[in-house]
């Protein structure tokens, strides 16, 4: 446990010091929220929902912020590889599993905080949830997204030598995961042939879970969302730990 804490602590120190990164990764979902949200607010009417489009969009933007930050945190191991710091950790008398779990905890915490920042801003632009339980449910789903996708990033980083493949992963894996998740539109309004794709997208269940927590309504039963996302998180953690075991410094 103390090793996991040590690696988590390093991640936190780095996070707190990287002001530009914090602002950078808050700005994108925030701009989406402002431009897309307010821009389409008067045009878009979500079927079966009383709230306006901005409120619909908020859970999606929180999920987006957690998703991008966590994948990036996981992939950051490549930096450690390139700057040589990974060697220092790998040659210590600690297990690879502890290192991987520490890194996952650190990345997930970072991503979670980024999500909370968006959530707090949302309160000022129209989110009016009074329910503490609702917030706790949203927090739970945010944490799961954070853990799952940090582990996903670590799994990818374990197989990559440098950052050249990063853009590729972002464009062809992470962005589709975000786009298909129902963060921007209700999944029921998609053409039928796309619906299976959204249903195999793990983030869909995260967005739906957060939406249930914050707005009280969702298209997928929150228990189902929890089960699917929870299962995906466990699977990703195992996959990340397995691939990290063989990482080369």
């Amino acid at each position: 446990m103390d090793i996991i804490y040590t690696i988590w602590l390093r991640n936190m120190k780095r996070y707190v010091r990287s002001k530009s990164r914090i602002i950078g990764s808050v700005s994108m979902p925030l701009f989406f929220l402002l431009f897309l949200g307010f821009g389409l607010n008067s045009v878009v009417q979500i079927p079966g929902m009383d709230e306006n489009y901005v409120v619909f969009l908020i859970p999606g933007m929180i999920a987006m912020s957690v998703l991008f930050t966590s994948v990036f945190s996981g992939i950051q191991i490549i930096w450690d590889k390139q700057f040589g710091f990974l060697k220092e950790t790998l040659v210590a008398p600690v297990s690879r599993l502890e290192i991987m779990l520490g890194q996952t905890a650190g990345g997930a915490t970072t991503a979670f905080i980024q999500g909370v920042i968006i959530l707090v801003i949302s309160v000022f632009i129209g989110l009016n949830s009074q329910s503490i339980t609702g917030f706790l449910i949203a927090f739970g789903f945010m944490a799961l997204i954070g853990i799952a996708f940090t582990a996903f990033g670590i799994a990818i980083a374990s197989r990559m030598d440098d950052m050249t493949g990063f853009q590729l992963i972002m464009n062809f894996v992470v962005f589709p995961i975000f786009g298909l998740s129902g963060a921007l539109f209700p999944i029921s309004s998609l053409p039928p042939f796309l619906i299976p794709l959204t249903l195999i997208d793990p983030l869909t269940y995260g967005v739906e879970g957060i939406r249930y927590g914050l707005t009280g309504s969702s298209q997928i039963n929150p228990v189902v969302s929890l089960a699917v996302l929870g299962g995906f998180t466990v699977a990703m953690t195992i996959a990340g730990a397995y691939l990290f075991r063989t990482i080369k410094s």
Binding site: R14, G84, E88
Partner: peptide
């Protein structure tokens, strides 16, 4: 190590 292995941000 031959190559530096410090965390420069710390």
């Amino acid at each position: 190590f031959q190559d530096q292995s410090l965390d420069e941000e710390l």
